[in-house]
Amino acid sequence: MTALPSPAPAGALFGTAVVAGVGLIGGSVALGLRQRGLARRVIGLDASMDVLRDAEALGVVDEVRAGPGDWLREADLVVLAAPMRALGPLARALAPHLNPAALVTDVGSVKAGIAAELERLGVHQFVPGHPMAGSERGGVTHARAELLENAVWVLTPTEATPLSALSRARALVEALGAAPVVMPPQAHDDLVATVSHLPYLASLALTHLVARDERLSLLAAGGFRDLTRVASGDPRMSRDMVVENRAPLRAALGRFRTQLERLEAELDAPEALLAAAEEGKRTRDSLPVVRRSLLPRRHDLVVAVSDRPNQIGAVTQALGGAGVNIKDIEVLAVREDGGAIRLGLETPEDAQEAARILTGAGFEVRGRG
């Protein structure tokens, strides 16, 4: 007989939550679950007894386990928080023991591979995720729930992701104080190649220049420090991250080389270089994280859907095929007879075009706000 997940207490989202991999991010998730009362108990799973002892002593988790087993059947939330290279093996080790009703998510920085792996393993309640948060200081001893607050947390459902699972994952992210953003796995990987993985390689290149001339280190000031901050991260974890996403990263590197070559040419054209500098300032100053407005304004549509597989996929395929870019997806309701999802579009024109396409495809659509 399949064990039922532990019932959640009043006000909690989950009964038993398991965080598999109790490092900086996993530990921060566990602390958030405990401090916000989102689970009745939080179990830390890790191969390192030293990590487990620290996690228990620091109050990061309620209980610890050193390996998977039938005890996992009690969990109704499982968070895979191992380093990138270990995520696949961890998923394969846990999959035979999971309760089919448990929500499973991860915190890896590359999504396409782990999404495909969990689908292959038959874990149907899986919603890939990536909290855009971190620190140069790793490990459970530096974990803190506040690390996740106000962070963008990307959720990357596949075509097979049930609406109910996405809704539960979104509720978890919001309850932890983060801001969920929904997009396909490959779209996520293409974007982070430019905004996360490329800056890491650029910071390595700059630090290598300094390492080869000790005079440079004497003159390295605040700007150099800020540009190379990410080089202070865990080398092995960072290596695994960029290697896992190497195809999109190679494309981003090509675009970056083109930009550097253009700027090099403009050293002999001061007015063109000034225009480039002004464009750079406008772009940097307009970033949501710089303006302290976490997410830009969206234009919303609400789409009625049936509660069956591939409804999200049908909507995204219809719009993607027509070149309409969805900026956000939210599950508003899930009922036995169907549900509703909110689509965030970038412009009013995008919203109008999306409504026309989806209505033509047989969906019921209405505007919102």
Results as ranks from 00 to 15, higher is better:
residue 51 V to P: 00
residue 358 L to N: 14
residue 315 V to H: 11
residue 33 L to M: 05
residue 286 S to H: 09
residue 245 N to F: 07
residue 367 G to E: 07
residue 302 V to N: 02
residue 341 I to P: 01
residue 365 V to Y: 10
residue 279 E to K: 10
residue 79 V to W: 05
residue 165 A to K: 02
residue 355 A to K: 15
residue 229 R to L: 09
residue 243 V to Q: 07
residue 244 E to Y: 01
residue 49 M to A: 11
residue 252 A to V: 00
residue 38 L to A: 13
residue 27 G to K: 10
residue 17 A to S: 07
residue 228 T to Y: 08
residue 91 A to S: 14
residue 62 D to F: 02
residue 119 E to D: 15
residue 251 A to L: 10
residue 214 E to M: 09
residue 266 E to N: 06
residue 158 T to F: 01
residue 119 E to Q: 15
residue 170 R to Y: 01
residue 361 A to H: 15
residue 258 T to Y: 01
residue 369 G to V: 02
residue 302 V to R: 10
residue 249 L to S: 07
residue 136 E to R: 11
residue 27 G to H: 10
residue 225 R to Y: 05
residue 185 P to D: 13
residue 337 D to P: 00
residue 131 P to K: 10
residue 63 E to F: 04
residue 21 G to C: 09
residue 332 L to N: 01
residue 343 L to W: 03
residue 141 T to W: 01
residue 77 L to V: 07
residue 83 P to H: 14
residue 300 D to L: 15
residue 229 R to D: 07
residue 184 P to I: 06
residue 83 P to V: 12
residue 179 A to P: 00
residue 74 E to A: 13
residue 151 A to T: 03
residue 317 Q to H: 14
residue 293 S to R: 14
residue 80 L to K: 04
residue 41 R to F: 13
residue 341 I to R: 04
residue 312 I to K: 06
residue 246 R to I: 07
residue 10 A to P: 07
residue 346 E to G: 01
residue 137 R to P: 02
residue 16 T to L: 11
residue 12 A to H: 03
residue 1 M to K: 12
residue 149 E to F: 06
residue 203 S to D: 05
residue 265 A to I: 06
residue 318 A to Q: 13
residue 293 S to M: 06
residue 43 I to C: 14
residue 226 D to L: 01
residue 45 L to F: 09
residue 141 T to L: 07
residue 101 A to I: 00
residue 298 R to C: 04
residue 302 V to G: 03
residue 336 E to V: 04
residue 200 Y to H: 15
residue 114 I to E: 12
residue 64 V to A: 09
residue 196 S to P: 08
residue 13 L to M: 01
residue 298 R to T: 07
residue 244 E to Q: 13
residue 133 A to P: 02
residue 169 A to E: 06
residue 205 A to T: 09
residue 278 E to H: 05
residue 333 A to R: 12
residue 282 R to F: 06
residue 17 A to M: 01
residue 127 V to A: 10
residue 120 R to K: 14
residue 350 D to S: 14
residue 58 L to I: 00
residue 72 L to D: 11
residue 65 R to P: 02
residue 103 L to Y: 07
residue 42 V to E: 12
residue 102 A to N: 10
residue 315 V to T: 12
residue 281 K to R: 14
residue 121 L to R: 09
residue 278 E to W: 02
residue 43 I to F: 10
residue 236 R to C: 01
residue 76 D to P: 08
residue 282 R to H: 10
residue 174 E to P: 00
residue 271 E to D: 13
residue 326 I to H: 08
residue 3 A to Q: 14
residue 347 T to H: 12
residue 45 L to D: 08
residue 310 N to S: 14
residue 330 E to T: 11
residue 155 L to W: 13
residue 225 R to C: 04
residue 9 P to Y: 09
residue 293 S to D: 12
residue 135 S to C: 10
residue 263 L to Y: 08
residue 118 L to G: 08
residue 279 E to F: 03
residue 129 G to P: 06
residue 178 A to V: 01
residue 310 N to E: 15
residue 307 D to G: 11
residue 242 V to A: 10
residue 322 A to N: 12
residue 86 A to P: 02
residue 302 V to I: 13
residue 6 S to K: 14
residue 129 G to W: 07
residue 56 E to W: 02
residue 282 R to E: 13
residue 114 I to H: 09
residue 128 P to L: 11
residue 5 P to F: 13
